Simulated scan of single mutants.
Amino acid sequence: MYQKEHEEKLIHDVLAYYPFQVEHVALKSNKSGRKIWEIETDKGPKMLKEAQIKPERMLFITQAHAHLQEKGLPIAPLHKTKNGGSCIGADHISYCLYDKVPGKEMIYYNTEQMKKIMEFAGRFHHAAKGYVCSDESKKRSRLGKWNKLYRWKLQELEGNMQIASSFPDDPFSQTFLLHADKMLARGKEALRRLDASDYEEWTKETLKNGGFCFQDFTLARLTEVDGEPFLKELHSITYDLPSRDLRILFNKLMVKLSVWDTELMVSLLRSYDAVYPLTEKQYEILWIDLAFPHLFCAIAHKYYLKQKKSWSDEKYNWALQNMISVEHSKEDFLQQLPALFKDIKSQQGVS
């Protein structure tokens, strides 16, 4: 009881920095080091986000939120404090306040919604250009670091292969080892191709333009308002190539489908490309990133570090089988870039 009262007092102290009369406060979400409070005010419902990150990092995110808002992207209005700040915080706890935006759920299995989401992603990447964070903020960037990240993931994969070998009776490790050599080889080939690609040129162009990515592109951040996607909050961002968002979104989608659907992907990329066109060299970098076994590496990372404490062995094994199905079923797709690039650019392409 004391902790709850203390927490409620803290939230009211935070809300005192904003120019609203608070009528009611309710905790709506509490996970992954973030809490979301719904605030009823004299100016309508608001959402207060509490995150276990330094204020300098939150400032990097909220200033980007304000940048997107100024560029006209459909995003929940962010509110400033009485002193004009976009967020507040101390030590490793930060807060920001934005409007609650009612809307319909957007789902991965709705193709028409997904096409609109791809158009929205293109608008997001256009709007992200020109963002310059303040000196007080702490930026996050992965630009120019893909080669290093690939190498680190491959080293971890080899380490997990050694760990798996020490558990010969473990079903997860048995399945993992059946496919690890092939995934390791594909990862090494992706690294070789990345080194030979136009990655550095696209990185320099993005650095010049100041573009950023979602960091973790998921439909949980979006809602449908008047038939169109609307961003409920800006969870996190990083300076990186726009193709990183596409890779993350497509891998999420195909994992839910349990198989790689090439026709669907081309259809979705045509929607994105109509708003944010990419060159064939840039699509090659997306193809390389999709070829790297991010999914396979990720599930092994979770399992051997026991990151998902609530997951049973059965759930881990199911997730591994699903990742393997997706990784293997995308292989034909990975060999078809020239033809699929023409389909993406053609008005008569796959739909």
Rank of each mutant, 00 (worst) to 15 (best):
R247P: 02
A319C: 12
Y199R: 02
L184N: 11
G103L: 05
Q347G: 11
P293C: 06
V14M: 06
K232W: 01
T41Y: 03
K309I: 15
H6C: 14
F217T: 08
S267V: 04
W287R: 05
K49S: 15
E112C: 07
P19T: 10
D170G: 06
I117F: 09
Q174M: 13
Y2M: 14
L249K: 00
K71T: 06
E38R: 12
S271Q: 05
F292W: 04
K31Q: 15
F250S: 08
L264S: 03
A298M: 14
K116G: 10
V326D: 00
H125A: 02
G89F: 03
K252N: 15
W152P: 10
S86A: 13
Y18V: 05
A274V: 01
A66Q: 13
L320F: 04
F230N: 07
V22N: 06
P293H: 11
S197Y: 00
S29Q: 15
D170P: 00
F250D: 05
G84P: 06
Y239M: 10
R140F: 12
H67R: 07
W318P: 00
K31V: 12
D198T: 08
Y2A: 15
L337E: 01
L222P: 01
S94F: 04
N317V: 10
K43I: 09
T81R: 13
G187P: 03
W287P: 00
S236L: 06
L241F: 05
K28T: 09
F214Q: 09
I93N: 07
R57Y: 05
T218C: 11
T41K: 05
I237N: 00
A291W: 03
E56Y: 04
K115E: 08
L269V: 04
K100P: 06
Y276K: 09
R193P: 00
Q63R: 14
R186C: 13
F214P: 00
K35F: 00
V225S: 04
T279Q: 08
E280H: 04
D198E: 12
Y131G: 07
K129N: 15
L219Q: 08
S137R: 08
T262N: 08
Q335D: 11
K330M: 14
F124S: 00
L246F: 03
G130E: 07
K342H: 11
S346K: 09
N317I: 10
R244P: 01
I299D: 11
E263M: 11
M265D: 04
G85V: 07
F214G: 07
T238C: 11
E233C: 10
L59W: 02
G89D: 02
Y276N: 06
L290R: 03
G89I: 06
D261V: 09
E119P: 05
L154I: 13
Y316E: 12
L157V: 07
H79D: 12
V25W: 02
A64G: 11
A196Y: 05
